[in-house]
Design a binder for these strands. Structure first.
Lengths: 115, 115
DNA sequence: CCCATACTCAAGTCGCGACTTGACTATCCG
DNA sequence: CGGATAGTCAAGTCGCGACTTGAGTATGGG
């Protein structure tokens, strides 16, 4: 919602399977728009729209040479998503570590009941 | 598309910012449905629907004790998404390594590169 | 026992996002 | 030049997904 817009756009972009398919193919190397479109049983125009979303989210960069637009993956975008996920997971697993501490030995003095 | 359904569901679930907000709060610890709902300016029913999506995607597990449903993060779900991203990024960066080899020198006769 | 709590369920609304169509522009090549 | 290729743009359709409302069911505490 009123989130960090970048993360928002990235995860929204990743939420569509056609867009993930595009990312998947681009991870093997740069491709033109029509090359990307071929295996995708949607129209070229739809692919262009997906590419707009991907580019605005920072996951893909494109450059037009002559009449062909070349698209490549921009891995830093993927990094942002990865970091977000790793972070949440980290926090969660950290809790288990603390639980381990609690079980291991009596904590100095701290009492506050919750759930 | 007709993708691996699990990855599909996970990224679709992550695509909504309210659901990510739920994940974010759950990464700090387990919470009840109504506790999750409080900061979210949507109705309880909407939160329950989000939780259904999260649970079906394997990102969250819930258990009902008495009248309260306790929700906790299921980090393996996050792991699946992380792995997918790391994989694509890996493929892409691997390409640059190969490009580096090519640029480094005209391959003598055999090449055995290791960073 | 009774009221509040904590959900649950079924409908129904509504806007947005994915996709198409059709017309148009720019570039390459023979 | 002319035709084919590659992409662009603007509208418009349509279904799905997020959300609400309202009524119903257990559970727990005083």
């Amino acid at each position: 919602m009123l989130n960090n817009g970048a993360v928002d756009r990235i995860f929204h972009a990743l939420g569509d399977s056609n867009r993930r398919a595009i990312i998947e193919r681009l991870s093997r190397g740069a491709l033109s728009v029509s090359a990307l479109a071929k295996p995708l049983d949607i129209t070229l125009a739809a692919v262009v729209q997906h590419l707009q979303v991907l580019e605005e989210s920072g996951l893909v960069r494109t450059e037009k040479l002559g009449r062909v637009r070349s698209c490549q993956l921009h891995p830093e975008g993927l990094r942002v998503a990865e970091d977000w996920l790793a972070n949440r997971r980290g926090l969660w697993e950290q809790r288990f570590d603390r639980l381990g501490e609690l079980l291991d030995g009596p904590v100095p003095s701290r009492k506050k009941a919750r759930t």
